[in-house]
């Protein structure tokens, strides 16, 4: 039984996926994917998670792979992802998503397996499992949500926190001489021969969302090739922990985050590999 029904306060507000009575009068040009569970999400206003959840579920619907997809959501804000994604999923211990996904994919190589990990999870406690999974070329998709802070525990410094950035555990700003520089996960993992497709995207504008969606479509499709790991790093907005309005947070990505985490493809498959599409 989905526990989200108990997480959220009771509400009379029902937002249907599409308005039935209007269908006759207007053409429906957009609706939420049927693979997304129609409930209120627990995420903060302006948070990237809800948007990326929807994008992933749109891709699953578009590729018609609901029956073949298994997701892994480890500890972090998105640990409740299985309340929203209408697919089979496994919750994982903090940092262990790639090991759990390895267990799933090796036993079911025909399935589409993805992890959905935050930056504390992937880049701190779980970087070992992540690196080794990619080095083995596990045919999984890693969706890496990088918002430069620990979201769920309310804004502590992450391995990805920008130099000088104020967090609850770096109150004077991240001191690079003490904590080192932010880890550029996408660049790091692209160096491994096991990675097949590595890109860094964002969801802070309509254009960015379109690009991220395209990246996710490709990353899911590439699993059919059994050529290695796909890593889609997404710079996530976290207005609550950045102490910003959603609009300020969207701007912060363009003005500050991209200086450390430039957007775009880092490793793309060669044309030979993609012949079958």
């Amino acid at each position: 039984m989905p526990i989200d029904q108990h997480v959220l306060p009771e509400t009379d507000l029902i937002i249907p996926a599409c308005h039935k009575e209007e269908e006759d009068e207007y053409e429906v040009v957009y609706h939420k994917p049927a693979t997304l569970v129609d409930v209120n999400m627990h995420y903060c206003p302006g948070c990237a998670h809800s948007l990326v959840h929807k994008l992933i579920m749109e891709v699953v619907e578009e590729l018609d792979i609901q029956e073949k997809t298994v997701g892994v959501a480890p500890v972090g804000c998105s640990v409740f992802a299985y309340d929203y994604m209408d697919i089979d999923m496994q919750e994982a211990a903090h940092g262990r998503a790639c090991a759990v996904a390895t267990g799933i994919k090796r036993l079911m190589p025909g399935k589409y397996v993805f992890t959905y990990q935050g930056d504390g999870d992937l880049a701190a406690i779980g970087i070992g499992e992540t690196l080794h999974a990619i080095n083995r070329g596990e045919n999984i998709l890693i969706v890496f949500m990088n918002n430069a802070v620990y979201g769920m525990t309310s804004g502590q410094m992450a391995p990805t926190t920008l130099p000088g950035m104020h967090t609850t555990t770096s109150p004077d700003g991240r001191d690079v001489s003490f904590y080192g520089a932010p880890i550029k996960v996408a660049e790091l993992m692209a160096n491994l021969p096991g990675s097949f497709y590595v890109t860094r995207q964002a969801v802070n504008s309509a254009n960015a969302v379109r690009k991220t969606r395209k990246a996710l479509v490709n990353a899911f499709k590439y699993q059919q090739l059994h050529k290695g790991t796909c890593l889609v790093e997404i710079i996530g907005n976290c207005p609550s922990n950045w102490k910003m309005t959603p609009v300020e947070a969207a701007k912060f990505i363009d003005e500050e985050m991209v200086k450390t985490f430039p957007l775009g493809d880092i490793k793309v498959p060669n044309a030979e590999d993609l012949k079958i599409f």
Partner: peptide, 26 residues
């Protein structure tokens, strides 16, 4: 059958978790 040398015992028990969660004898 699947046999894998994991990168650590932490990883191997979590691989067991994933495979067992998918219904396999692990």
């Amino acid at each position: 059958r699947i046999v894998m040398q994991a990168e650590s015992e932490v990883a191997s028990i979590n691989m067991v978790y994933g495979a067992a969660g998918a219904g396999f004898r692990t």
